[in-house]
Design a protein around this nucleic acid. Sequence first.
DNA 1: CTGTATCCTGCCGGATACTG
DNA 2: CAGTATCCGGCAGGATACAG
Lengths: 134, 134
Amino acid sequence: MDETTPRDGADSLPFDVFSRQCPSRGTLEHVTGRWGSLTLTALYETGARFNELRRRVDGVSEKMLSQTLHALERDGLVLREAQPTNPPRVDYELTPLGREVAGRLLGLIQLVEGRMPEVLDARSRYDEAREVTL
Amino acid sequence: MDETTPRDGADSLPFDVFSRQCPSRGTLEHVTGRWGSLTLTALYETGARFNELRRRVDGVSEKMLSQTLHALERDGLVLREAQPTNPPRVDYELTPLGREVAGRLLGLIQLVEGRMPEVLDARSRYDEAREVTL
DNA sequence: CTGTATCCTGCCGGATACTG
DNA sequence: CAGTATCCGGCAGGATACAG
């Protein structure tokens, strides 16, 4: 593979996330970002209202959840349904595309969760090896 | 589902990424982070040396690539092989676990890349709707 | 070539207060 | 309840220089 080739099979890709200015990179960051991934997967089983969502995603602030939801809604991954009642009630749920993305994220998360023992093991070994040198 | 239940089926999970202090959250962030996801998938097809990797991941700085690689190596996802030659030569490649994770990431990335037309469409509609209101 | 070390800036993101 | 507005500290992360 010569160096002008970005990567295998990527020649014909209109949206290459490995290229700096490609808009797909921004979307990927929304999806995989600190709160984006958790928000999407939190909506996988069932939709939720704002505060319910806050409770599902432990640690997220109002501001960041709001920002995250707006970005995901703009990208067409989350659907926002506001009801003009009093008190106001807003439901969030995944769009079909959002569900596909969330499904993949869920798989990734479950893989990571399931392999945490290995990860923690690797960390111990890594840290131990570093301590000796120090 | 009462509010003490974290989420469906998660009762018995030792590592729940939805909980704030769980170490799995940190690993997930390494994996899905801005540079982590691109670095891992860039190594999927074949290992690479430092500068080759920098070229594959367009836009990453030396500092961030170095940091990212260290974090991934510590978590047992990337293997670092330094050869004591002059000039120095260091090869990076995925561990078996890293390959599994990268595979999932690759699927996610390809999904996003393939659906970018839909995403851009959704964005246009969203922005248009906002402009009217402003 | 393969990195660290240092400096510096922007903006991420938390806390708080306020609105409808 | 469902958010926006504002302030502000910390750190992510870029640029640069330097080391082995």
